Amino acid sequence: MSMTTTAVVAHGAGDVRIQNVDVRTPAPDEAVIAVAYGGVCGSDLHYWRHGAVGESVLRAPMILGHEVSGTVVQAAADGTGPAAGTRVTVHPARRERTTVRFPDDRPNLSPGVRYLGSAARFPHTEGAFAGEVVLPAVMLRALPEALDLRIAALAEPAAVAWHAVSQAGDLRGKRVLVVGSGPIGTLAVAVAKRSGATEIVAVDLHAKPREIARAVGATRTLDAGDSEGIAGVDADVVIESSGNHRGLASAVKGATRGGTVVMVGLLPNGDQPVPIAHAITREVRLVGSFRFNDEIDEVIPALADGSLAVEPVITHTFPVDETLKALTVAADSSVSGKVLLAF
């Protein structure tokens, strides 16, 4: 198969190109997917702006993207995975062997995981922002009839939010504070609502994300600068999704005594100035949350039946040839939520 397809390729900081790439020949356990939509993630923005995500530095051109939906155009030759014509979304993690210890039931913590569109290893793991992409059949998740491809592109980030919220345990009757109302934060609001939280307070610097948070279930919102208001929330559970130390400080202060703070926003490497004594004297539980495991298999039916209502999180859709405009809009959280590319 010597076909080519249009792809979004990061070459380095400030250098993302829309270019033709070869569609490689699938292995027997791989399928060919015609991609319909791709969601722009914070990591895609980091590769575009900085040529790196933390310690994952671009050393060669790499196709971006790991939040995608589409249709199988060629099923895996070995008979595994969905048949041709099946509409799918993608679980972007592929497990590989490692000698490093991690809990067996939490494969997301294994360093032996390759993630689509990641420069963590070399050669890099190509992403899925392309018209046609070859993927292991095991990554594909068939979609219910009721779920359209546009919403299905949110299955991966919704699974990240689902995993984060589940780290806090049962939310029924609880008061929840979400710090940082970007796409993951607003998806966490939607998951918390579905999980039975009675009060959900969402925080952000900008009005637009707060508006999206209200649309998906926040009972009220606060400006990120209102430190007194945030401290007064006295939340049973806090989801920290801002990814900066000020947000984590707000999260610690907004938690009730004996409460739980789930840290899903990835802070920069190195030491962070956070009022940690406050967490110690109040016995606040601080819990990390990284990617997800099988939560995507619970997310898909919840998206399909409407019990996880996420439509307002999607604010923009751009054709793939306007990718640079899409990245620019996605990088401005004062105007956008989740930005999709249409292939």
Rank of each mutant, 00 (worst) to 15 (best):
W48Q: 06
L177E: 06
F290G: 00
A142E: 10
V262W: 12
H316G: 05
G70W: 03
A52N: 08
A279E: 06
S333G: 14
R141D: 04
H245F: 13
G182R: 13
P123M: 11
G247I: 04
L341Q: 11
P123H: 09
L308G: 08
I212T: 12
G54R: 02
V335A: 15
L143F: 08
V165K: 04
E228W: 01
L266H: 07
A277R: 15
T6F: 05
W48Y: 13
L147V: 06
T315I: 13
L248G: 08
V189W: 01
G131P: 04
A119S: 14
T317G: 02
P92I: 05
G81E: 03
R114Y: 14
S227N: 11
G254I: 05
R59S: 04
E67S: 04
V335P: 05
E240P: 00
R59N: 06
A188T: 03
G65I: 04
T6Y: 07
K208C: 07
A302V: 10
V216F: 02
L177G: 07
V138G: 07
H11V: 00
M139Q: 10
M3Y: 10
V8R: 07
E156N: 02
D332W: 11
P61E: 02
G232W: 01
G247M: 11
P273V: 05
G85Y: 13
D148C: 12
E295T: 03
T260E: 10
G243D: 03
D148S: 09
V57G: 06
